[in-house]
């Protein structure tokens, strides 16, 4: 089992999934989001899309837990990179509720029958992840949630801690290397190892 201190530190850093870019409340009419891009970062055309998946989609999913989000990664480097937004068409109430209110929806996908053509399709090739998010917010009219001040200070603390850890790491490393070098020199002087090695 992972050491408890490590685990707790990771949980303290969970704040990243609550706040930051992507902490948005999507309107009820949005029934599904799907992203499509290439598997690898060849030529970096799909880099933004992939970063969007890794950094921003978890936040969106956390804030909109009932919203189905799918990611399709194809194997064609020249292939497309799209962000599809599905919305319930004229009557938002009837189409938006089924996916969340059916008691056993694990096997069936009710939203697929409601509408299977995306309302908005955004080409996201060569987009930075923040641009993709901007486009999403603009198209759907989502509410961007603000970070509560106490969580912001805690996040700043974590950031500072990490920075200091990096500085400390360098310091300790230098010290350790120095000790090792001295030991090596001593060994050399004593003739325990040959100078060639």
């Amino acid at each position: 089992m992972v050491n408890i201190i490590k685990r707790m530190r990771k949980l303290r850093e969970l704040l990243w999934i609550r706040n930051g870019p992507g902490a948005i409340q999507l309107p009820k009419e949005v029934t599904k989001i799907s992203v499509e891009f290439h598997k690898k970062l060849i030529g970096s055309q799909h880099r933004g899309a992939r970063h969007f998946w890794h950094d921003i989609l978890p936040r969106i999913k956390y804030r909109n837990p009932a919203l189905p989000i799918s990611v399709t990664r194809h194997a064609d480097p020249a292939g497309p990179a799209y962000l599809h937004i599905f919305t319930a068409q004229p009557t938002p109430q009837t189409a938006a509720i089924p996916p969340s209110s059916t008691p056993q929806p694990t096997s069936s996908t009710p939203e697929a029958t409601a509408n299977d053509t995306p309302t908005h399709t955004i080409e996201i090739k060569d987009f930075h992840e923040s641009e993709i998010l901007e486009a999403l917010v603009e198209k759907t009219g989502a509410v961007v949630l603000t970070t509560p001040p106490e969580e912001a200070t805690e996040m700043a603390e974590i950031e500072e801690f990490k920075e200091r850890a990096e500085v400390d790491r360098v310091e300790v490393r230098e010290k350790l290397m120095k000790v090792r070098r001295e030991e090596e020199l001593l060994k050399l002087a004593r003739g325990e190892i040959s100078a060639a090695s």
Partner: peptide, 13 residues
């Protein structure tokens, strides 16, 4: 589960 589902976004069910 709320957190885990957010971490597993885009993965197969």
């Amino acid at each position: 589960m709320h957190y885990i589902r957010a971490f597993e976004v885009g993965r197969g069910a």
